[in-house]
Amino acid sequence: MKNNVGGIDKILRIVAGLGLIAWAAVGNGPAWAWIGVMPLATGLLGTCPAYSLLGFNSCPLKKD
């Protein structure tokens, strides 16, 4: 798969994902907080299926 998540977008996804997972894991958070797995995965992998469907790309352009 082609990377379409880059820079600040990647960092925000990882932080938000970890935050939601931690919230759910400590027992105080609602069950839906486990949705944090998705932003964490897309941030770590650098690919977002929704971005692919919408034709969006937050990766910087590479100069040849």
Rank of each mutant, 00 (worst) to 15 (best):
G46C: 03
G6Q: 12
G43T: 05
I8L: 14
W32L: 12
R13W: 08
P39I: 06
G7E: 09
V15L: 15
P39V: 07
L53K: 09
G55W: 07
G19N: 06
L40W: 05
K2S: 13
P30S: 11
K10M: 13
L54M: 13
F56Y: 10
G43R: 03
K10Q: 14
T47C: 05
T47S: 10
C48L: 02
G46D: 04
V5C: 02
A50L: 15
P30C: 00
A50F: 10
L40R: 03
T42H: 04
V37T: 05
L61E: 15
P49Q: 02
C48W: 00
I14P: 05
L54A: 10
T47N: 10
L18I: 14
T42N: 01
I11T: 13
I35Y: 06
S58F: 09
G29E: 02
A33Q: 03
P30M: 06
L40Y: 00
G46M: 02
A50R: 06
A50Q: 08
W23K: 04
I21A: 11
M38S: 09
G19I: 04
K62A: 13
T47V: 15
L18N: 01
K2E: 10
L20W: 13
G27N: 05
I35W: 07
K10S: 13
M1I: 08
G27M: 11
G29V: 08
W32P: 01
P60E: 15
G6E: 10
V15H: 07
C48I: 01
W32A: 11
A50G: 01
G43C: 07
K63Y: 11
G36F: 00
P39R: 04
A41R: 00
A22H: 02
G27V: 08
V37N: 00
M1W: 11
C48A: 00
P39G: 05
L61M: 11
A31S: 11
G19E: 03
D64T: 12
L45K: 05
M38R: 00
L53E: 02
A31L: 14
A50C: 04
S58G: 01
I8P: 00
D64C: 03
M1A: 12
W23R: 04
P49E: 06
K63T: 13
S52M: 07
G29P: 06
L45T: 13
I11K: 12
I14A: 09
A24H: 14
L54I: 09
P60K: 15
V26E: 12
N28Y: 12
L45P: 00
N3E: 15
L20T: 08
K63H: 10
A33W: 00
L54Q: 04
I21L: 15
A24F: 14
D9L: 04
A41H: 02
L61D: 11
S52T: 09
D64H: 13
A22W: 09
Y51M: 10
A31Q: 11
